[in-house]
Design a protein around this nucleic acid. Structure first.
Lengths: 153, 153
DNA sequence: TATGAAAGCTAGTATCA
DNA sequence: TGATACTAGCTTTCATA
C-alpha cells in the first residue's frame, strides 16, 4: 500500500490541497509536466488511498456554528461494550468533528462545533445520559488561530 | 453578509461536502432541482464565503504522518508582542494543523501532525526556543476515532 | 425564479514519438 | 514514459417563459 512519491507527486498534492478546482492543464503547468502524466499520477494516488476525498470546506461562522469546544474525557469504564457504545455515539453525532483515543490519564479528546454554549450543553447532557463518563473538561475556543487540512507532504 | 439558506441550499452543501467531484446534474437530481439553479446557488454561496475552499483530503497515515498530538499550552506572557510572535510561529509551521486560543486556565490548544515522536520533539524544541512558554502538556493520539470536515448545516 | 439551448472547456482516452 | 490529438460530457452563460 505504501507508494513512493517523487517530487512531482508531492507538488501535485500541494496544488490539489490548496485548490482542487484547478484544471489538469493548470496543475501540469505548475508542476512542470503535462496533462496525461499528471492525470495518471493523480489516479494512482487515489487508488493508493493517499488522496482520500474531494470536498468543499465551509465557513462555520458564516453558517452560525460559532462555538467550538475541545472536550477532554476521563472514564472509569474500559470494557469493550462500553467503548463500542461510546464510539457509536460519537460517530452518530454530527457536531463531533473529531474524536481521538489518547495515551495517558485523559482517555479521549473531542472537537465539537455547535451554534452556542446552550447547544453544547445539550450535546453534553445527551452524551453523559448515553454513556457513563467519569470526568469531563470542556475547553472553549475563543479564537481559531489556525485551521488547515493541508498536510505537509 | 449573512445569506439565508433554504432546504435546497442545505442539501447542496451536504452533497458538496460529501463528494465535491459530483457533476452538477448529479447534485441537481439528488436535491430535486436542475442544473442552472443549482449552479447559481453554489455561486451565491461561494460569493458569500459560505463555501470557503475546494480541496482534497489526504490520508495522513499513508503519507507516513503517523503521530498526532494535541498540545495544551499555558503561558505567563500576555503582551501583544509575545502573542504576535507566537501566532506567527504557529502559522509558519506546517505540522500545526490547528491552533485555538482558549478561555480558562489553559491558554492555547494545538493539533500537530508529524511522522513520529522524535519529529514532535523537534517541533517542541523549536517552539519553546522561539517563544517563552510556561507549561506544555502533550496528549498523544492512539487512535483517530472520527475525523470529518462535514459541518452540520 | 426555472428551463433549455448553446458555447467553450475539461477530463479521460487513444495514439504517436 | 511523455507529448499531442480527439471526443464525450461537463460547466457556464444567456435567452426565454
Amino acid at each position: 500500500m505504501s507508494v513512493r512519491l517523487d517530487e512531482i507527486d508531492r507538488k501535485i498534492l500541494v496544488e490539489l490541497q490548496q485548490d482542487a478546482s484547478q484544471s489538469l492543464d493548470e496543475i501540469a503547468r505548475k508542476v512542470g509536466s503535462s496533462k496525461t502524466p499528471v492525470w495518471n499520477r493523480i489516479r494512482k494516488m487515489k487508488d493508493a488511498g493517499i488522496i482520500a476525498r474531494q470536498t468543499v470546506l465551509l465557513d462555520a461562522e458564516a453558517l452560525g456554528l460559532e462555538a467550538c469546544f475541545f472536550v477532554l474525557i476521563r472514564t472509569s469504564e474500559h470494557e469493550a461494550e462500553w467503548q463500542r457504545k461510546f464510539l457509536a455515539t460519537l460517530r452518530a453525532r454530527p457536531e463531533v468533528l473529531e474524536a481521538h483515543r489518547l495515551a495517558g490519564d485523559i482517555d479521549y479528546i473531542l472537537k465539537v462545533r455547535v451554534k452556542n454554549a446552550r447547544a453544547y450543553d445539550q450535546f453534553y447532557q445527551a452524551l453523559i445520559s448515553e454513556v457513563k463518563i467519569y470526568n469531563v473538561t470542556a475547553l472553549l475556543s475563543m479564537e481559531e488561530i489556525k485551521f488547515t487540512t493541508i498536510l505537509p507532504v
